[in-house]
């Protein structure tokens, strides 16, 4: 089957057996205003996909909705059954002044396994140590999180994603304000996940890095400007199209009619 997800194609009503995610006429937003408009398409299992677009183009909103944190205004997101999901929000969402150790933060990744009352077992501790080691944070287990640099915190958060052992991994601007060495290490981790046939979707700003690393790209400007193979998707023409959209919500904007059309 084609690796491309087509835009503006009619919503698929039959579920694709190989799809990790299917968007059907998906509209997301806050209040009356749509941040993502009538999105249709399929993310195949095992895809490594970047979501690219200007600020306010709906990238983070889309990830939040996929993670189940935001209900669609209309349309729907179909997830493959029994899909285990890991969501890594932008770093600013974390309360870094909270008195926790790296261990406490990373062990949250075992929540789906252990829940509210389950105690960590010996094997869990070993898993946490392995995950910390995989992100290059050996010996950081007892460090307070407010003593970490931005890059170290991001490494710890990737260790948490590792522990979640998810089929679908959502990363929201994982490399914002992160030094080059850390980016390299974490990209290697993303590629390892890709090799393990996990589906990875990352909101990205660095187009060079996207071209280098991500086979698939979704270019958003509230609606999908282009979606498919990265080289094709990030053509000069598409990028120009994406740039020419109004960022601010417009209170006098006409009501979108395509729903009834």
């Amino acid at each position: 089957m084609s690796q491309h997800a087509h835009i503006h194609s009619a919503p698929k009503r039959t579920k694709d057996a190989d799809a990790a995610l299917t968007f059907e006429n998906l509209t997301l937003g806050y209040g009356d205003h749509a941040a993502v408009h009538h999105l249709d398409g399929t993310v195949p299992r095992g895809a490594l996909m970047a979501v690219v677009g200007a600020n306010g183009s709906g990238k983070s909103t889309l990830l939040k909705a996929v993670a189940g944190l935001l209900r669609p205004m209309s349309g729907r997101i179909a997830r493959a059954p029994a899909l285990r999901l890991a969501y890594l929000a932008q770093q600013a969402e974390i309360d870094r002044s909270f008195p926790a150790r790296v261990f406490d933060l990373v062990s949250l990744g075992l929540w789906p396994k252990r829940g509210l009352l389950g105690r960590l077992r010996q094997a869990d501790r070993a898993d946490i140590a392995t995950a910390l080691s995989a992100v290059g944070l050996d010996g950081f287990s007892e460090r307070a999180i407010d003593s970490l640099s931005g890059g170290q915190l991001q490494r710890a958060l990737f260790a948490r994603v590792l522990l979640q052992d998810a089929d679908l991994i959502l990363l929201d601007e994982p490399f914002n304000a992160i030094d080059a060495k850390t980016v390299r290490d974490l990209v290697a981790l993303i590629q390892r996940w890709h090799g393990e046939e996990r589906t990875v979707i990352a909101v990205m700003h660095d187009l060079a890095l996207v071209r280098e690393t991500f086979p698939q790209t979704l270019l958003l400007a509230r609606r999908a400007v282009a979606w498919g193979e990265t080289a094709h998707c990030l053509s000069a023409e598409n990028l120009l199209k994406a740039r020419n959209f109004a960022e601010a919500f417009d209170d006098t904007a006409p009501w979108c009619r395509s729903e009834s059309a």
């Binding site: 890594l88 974390i94 909270f98 949250l108 509210l116």
Partner: peptide, 23 residues
Amino acid sequence: ALFWRGLVAECLDPLFFRSVSRL
């Protein structure tokens, strides 16, 4: 004691907690 871990998780990283739990 019962809610301890949930409270910690929700203070530390509320969005993450919402993504893994409805509690």
